[in-house]
Design a protein around this nucleic acid. Structure first.
Lengths: 336, 336
DNA sequence: GTGAAAGCGCTAACAC
DNA sequence: GTGTTAGCGCTTTCAC
């Protein structure tokens, strides 16, 4: 069987018109039982299935939900699993779309992606970590871990402020006083709140924030490596590092290993996210867990209601975080 | 800004025809610099971006690669990450498609999915764990972890036979003699080979396979739980269980906990895959690791070459597996 | 009960 | 240099 079978071919083979085939497929009235039977037979024999694209172009509703991600990395992928959880048994199909992680070249990718798929391919979309505030688009859209600024979009995010405090408080409780931070992408509210939580925790402990102990990781593996290296090679390096996400924390672990700095012996490291990979590192990462799958589930539930035209009272959902203690943190060594 | 902007609207706004807009967008010749400038301005102001669907329907090439999965579970998601790795900097975009895990109701989903997207939405596809052999479709398609039977499709898979032997040999080396198995989906070659490897390893150790120690888990969490329960409540239960994948192994751990059976004290458990989740269980799972991301990368590399029209000599790639020892296995207790 | 025709948003011949 | 037209695969009036 070669290439794709079109409705046209089915019609020709069955000796009927395309509109009759269409009616058979969509179960419309006005087809005799015999014709129905016959056409169905041809469809099955030829293995015909309507093109998603052609159908989408024609119909207003597509019954497809889109997940728009800059890249398929651990965080977005976990969210995707959550969306898949929520989509099961709703009758919706799922299309995850990414232009391949060329983010830097395109702040504002979400606007582009939305234009490309909304209204034609998908009925609504979950956008993961969008880069701009003003996604001025009035279709059903929910943002996960959204951009800073008052957003008119419905959003779902973890309590990043509380989470960061959890992480830094943990380090403080272990006796650390010089705590560095590898910060995240400055344009994301999640990153800002995590830095804020870091500052709050340190202030609450009666300490001052040493600005030299903050380095920009930007949620990017490479940049996080540089940031970690800068921090760890300081004349008076921190005894602990709080990283704005696990990717950055993992990069920090890496750099520490390269520099021959023992974790957690000489420096403790705390991450944020609890991506699955964080348990596989050496040492396993202590991290602030945010419920990534649940972010996806909540966002999807909201999106489905939005598509159904329901009014939603609370369009900003915040989920709690928890600390997951593993092996990358330990009490400060008593100075000898 | 409301809804999606169409080329028609751009044309009207700019006071030109749609074809002129099309030419501007696609950089075709035959547009005066002034018109180009003007139309470009309107496009930017309106935030216009061509609909992926309309464009796909019209053009033969779409520059989009599809990843077709029955569901977004850990295995397929890891493969997806690998595909994303490989796609970066190729210029291709990525669409992952799933109808939402209603597998059981639809063996043969991959044929349906292919018909829906191939030739219109995507230029080629990676299908993950297809259910049938005869995906009679001659477009560029690569199967990851494919169905049993001689397949004309290019395939990428792990060495399941060697992997299973690795896992079972590990248990044998620990002194286990009564080793049960929670088997996988009988229609998948991967599952068959893992069972074969189990049998081979036991025979190679000079033992007989006790058929009562095999239970069908079908790669399904629920069914795997039943299988594990059956095995663990046997009058003379096995001292170790080899599970056909990590999902099944995790289910086994779960059931053991419910039954108050200590792992690895009373029963050792080995999984297969090394999905990220397997490190998070209690106890952390000893498992046979298959390079899931690399499966995705290799498949994509092959697919890209296929789309480019290259002849590929070796269309069946097999990747090695390795044993990851964690805490769910221990030497057999000496009978008291 | 069935088919012809229009049109979804776009591109590519082909006229003008 | 620009617009008109046909058509990608499909659904949906609307004649017959």
């Amino acid at each position: 069987m070669s290439g794709r079978v079109t409705m046209h071919q089915v019609a020709a083979e069955a000796g009927v018109s395309v509109s009759t085939v269409s009616k058979v497929i969509n179960g419309r009235y006005g087809v005799s039982p015999e014709t129905f039977e016959h056409v169905t037979g041809v469809i099955n024999r030829l293995g015909y299935e309507a093109s998603l694209v052609a159908r989408s172009l024609r119909n207003r509703r597509t019954n497809v939900i889109g997940v728009l991600v800059a890249d398929f990395e651990p965080f977005s992928t976990e969210v995707l699993k959550g969306v898949a959880d929520a989509i099961r048994d709703t009758g919706y199909e799922l299309v995850a779309y990414s232009a391949g992680g060329r983010i830097d070249e395109h702040v504002g990718w979400e606007r582009r992606y939305l234009s490309r798929v909304m209204g034609t391919l998908v009925d609504g979309a979950v956008i993961v970590t969008p880069t701009v505030t003003d996604v001025q688009y009035d279709g059903p859209i929910v943002a996960v871990d959204p951009h800073t600024g008052r957003s008119s979009l419905p959003t779902v995010a973890a309590d990043n402020l509380q989470g960061a405090r959890l992480g830094v408080d943990h380090l403080l409780a272990l006796g650390h006083r010089r705590i560095g931070m590898v910060t995240g992408r400055p344009d994301l509210v999640s990153a800002q709140l995590r830095e804020q939580g870091y500052r709050d925790a340190i202030h609450a402990a009666g300490l001052r924030v040493d600005e030299d102990l903050l380095a920009l990781g930007a949620f990017d593996p490479e940049q996080a490596r540089e940031a970690a290296r800068a921090l760890l090679t300081l004349p008076d390096p921190p005894t602990a590092i709080f990283a704005a996400n696990d990717i950055s924390a993992l990069a920090t672990l890496d750099v520490a290993a390269e520099l021959g700095i023992d974790v957690p012996g000489r420096v403790s490291v705390v991450g944020f996210d609890n991506i699955p990979e964080s348990a596989l590192s050496e040492p396993a990462l202590t991290t602030v867990q945010q419920p990534m799958r649940q972010l996806g589930r909540e966002a999807t539930a909201m999106l489905v209601r939005l598509i159904a035209g329901e009014e939603i009272a609370d369009t900003h959902i915040t989920l709690d975080t928890t600390l997951v203690e593993r092996r990358s943190t330990a009490p400060t060594e008593v100075p000898t």
